[in-house]
Amino acid sequence: MRHVTKAALLVAGLTLAACANSDLYSGTDGPGSQSGATAGSVDDPTSIAHFQQVVGDRVLFAVDQSTLSDEGRLTVLAQANWLLDNPEYTAVVEGHADEQGTREYNLALGARRASAVRQLLVAQGVSANRIRTVSYGKERPIELCSAESCYAQNRRAVTVLAAGATG
């Protein structure tokens, strides 16, 4: 029973992540705006769309935690491989928290989450100066309900690509 539930959640998670991709391109502020970078086709393994949807651009965290889960770790390892294969991209890792927490604490918590992803990317050989981090705390939820099903999607770190020279 537990396994079934988990599998269902995973599928839901993937679907939501795919739906939410548009938000990475709609922003007018912040590093998520990715001016000049286009998503391209999922079928093109060097495209941003491929990175987002096949490699996986985000990892999720448990309540109040910034340690990568086994599954999250696998995603970040895949991100690292992709970044090593596609050196023309830099990335900003955006850390986020759910709404259950005070504003300042959530900013700091989001920074921890983003840093956890960055540290693993760098440990895998991605040049440190290609990866920046930023925290949005609870300012940028992608799921809106006030329930764990939404909170689980909002406790995330998203690796946002930008085309261009090393920062």
Binding site: L107, A108, A111, R112, A114, S115, R118, Q119, S135
Partner: peptide, 9 residues
């Protein structure tokens, strides 16, 4: 103020 560096605030 708080300053965050390397994930630590």
């Amino acid at each position: 103020m708080s300053v965050t560096e390397g994930g630590n605030t």
